[in-house]
Design a protein around this nucleic acid. Structure first.
Lengths: 276, 276
DNA sequence: TTGCTCCTCACGTCACGTGAGGTGGC
DNA sequence: TTGCTCCTCACGTCACGTGAGGTGGC
């Protein structure tokens, strides 16, 4: 019985080899309360770990290889197995999402750096009639933007449908203020409608006035950050070079269905209202 | 002509807004020589950037979003466009590779945490006859291991084929020392052969002696790190619990073709030579 | 004169790595 | 007694963020 069922105490070096963690890391985890030695000698300060702690130590090591922060590892370790798996899954989904963003950025950089001096966007002008729109407005930073547009789109179409009104044009999104990591808009999602419909507490009903606008049409791929900034820059430059005066907030008009569009198909207009 | 073709000088705040970089970052890039202001006032120390520098600044910002280190960004910025694209591609490939490793780690954690107390590996014994092997040995860390095994496999089979000898058993890999980030083996890749064949400077020819070994068979999926450690631990435990004495370096026997095997198909044996 | 912008310097963050200098057990 | 292992403390790394305290230009 005394052979290997008993819980042995290991000094830090032996425990480090078994758990494949460094001495420095083990001392840090002790100080943070993440992995406290089974016994610490009063006099010498020597740390002694039980063999039972090897599994926890290895798990910490594996989670660190995922670059999970120690704080978050602490919460995972406090969870029962199924919840811990779910939490790891959530963390990993965040990583995959950020990798996907970077992947698009790499694609943009490749196109952008290869194609210096390529034909630029062709900026055009058009007259927009007054439009009756259902709208939803909110202040938010860029990370919540796609989800908000998606949700607002569903909400507005559903409200129109259930009121018996019909959709009378393409969804567009007005940026009343800048939207990025720090700046939070506000952003207004607008759906042109025809027929009887009432506003609600969340959904506004208003007339977007007739105006002239300068715009460029971009493809699905070009709407990915940061490519879309090129489109804004192109329209902005055009407006300045032609001595026009801005007359409203910039907007994006989504005239195609995302699900049915190739990366290189026209998908969206970036438009600036200008004075006539 | 004086309208917008002239190079304007911007103080740091204006330049920060245009380039979407922080003041702190700009001052750091200045100090590192990564992005030096066009002019610095002798007396006040005020930094003035030219509008021409906006593009470089934005590129730095984008590369930082990929989490490329500043050192590496410096090299990218010194390259002509095509070489810069290639360098970004190499960097990104490294990122994707490390994500793939982590992806497998997550898969392992999910199986491992869900299935606590699952049936463990079944350790078996067998007698191995003496084998005549072509072998290639090298000291390397874990990151270069897969490439080395792949390359050695091709080299050994090619050498056997061109000598008119025939392959007489499964490729196996002997770990004469531990292989991980710090420890570099050495590792020996062995291919059993029959018929006339000569050693070369790189390729050895020797007799792997007959021996008894304890082993477990694992699936393709289980060979991914860190799952494979479980197999090693299982055999190690078995050897100790059964009072057997190790009689050689641990090894992995690859008896199936990686290209034709499902993740859950048997793929490899993890074996420890033991005394009889 | 008041704000705003700019400056440098110092300290904090995160998860450690790498000594320096000293102690304890076999 | 000699090595080896352990201890704490301090400083370095990386790319900044966040004040503190002070200056300069309109």
């Amino acid at each position: 019985m005394s052979q290997s069922t008993a819980t042995e105490l290991l000094p830090i070096g032996a425990f480090a080899r078994r758990s494949r963690l460094s001495l420095k890391a083990l001392r840090l985890y002790d100080r943070l309360g993440l992995l406290v030695p089974a016994r610490v000698d009063r006099d010498s300060g020597y740390r002694y770990y039980s063999t039972d702690q090897v599994e926890r130590a290895q798990l910490i090591g594996l989670l660190r290889r995922l670059e999970m922060p120690l704080q978050r590892i602490a919460t995972v370790l406090d969870l029962p197995a199924p919840a811990a798996v779910a939490e790891i899954g959530r963390f990993w989904a965040e990583t995959e999402a950020s990798v996907e963003v970077k992947r698009r950025l790499v694609a943009y950089l490749e196109r952008h750096l290869e194609g210096r001096g390529e034909p630029m966007y062709e900026v055009m002008q058009r007259e927009m009639p007054a439009q009756r729109v259902l709208s939803r407005q909110r202040a938010l930073t860029v990370e919540h933007l796609p989800a908000f547009i998606e949700q607002a789109y569903r909400q507005l179409t559903e409200h129109a449908r259930s009121s018996g009104a019909s959709v009378a044009g393409s969804l567009f999104v007005i940026y009343h203020g800048e939207v990025n990591q720090d700046s939070d808009g506000p952003v207004e999602v607008c759906l042109p409608v025809e027929g009887a419909v009432e506003p609600t507490e969340e959904i506004g009903l208003r007339i977007e006035p007739a105006h002239r606008e300068a715009f460029v049409t971009i493809t699905r791929q070009q709407t990915d950050f940061p490519g879309i900034l090129d489109a804004y820059a192109a329209v902005d430059r055009w407006v300045k070079h032609n001595g026009r005066t801005p007359a409203g907030s910039p907007r994006e008009v989504y005239f195609a269905d995302e699900a049915q569009v190739d990366p290189d198909d026209p998908f969206c207009d970036v438009a600036f209202p200008i004075e006539r």
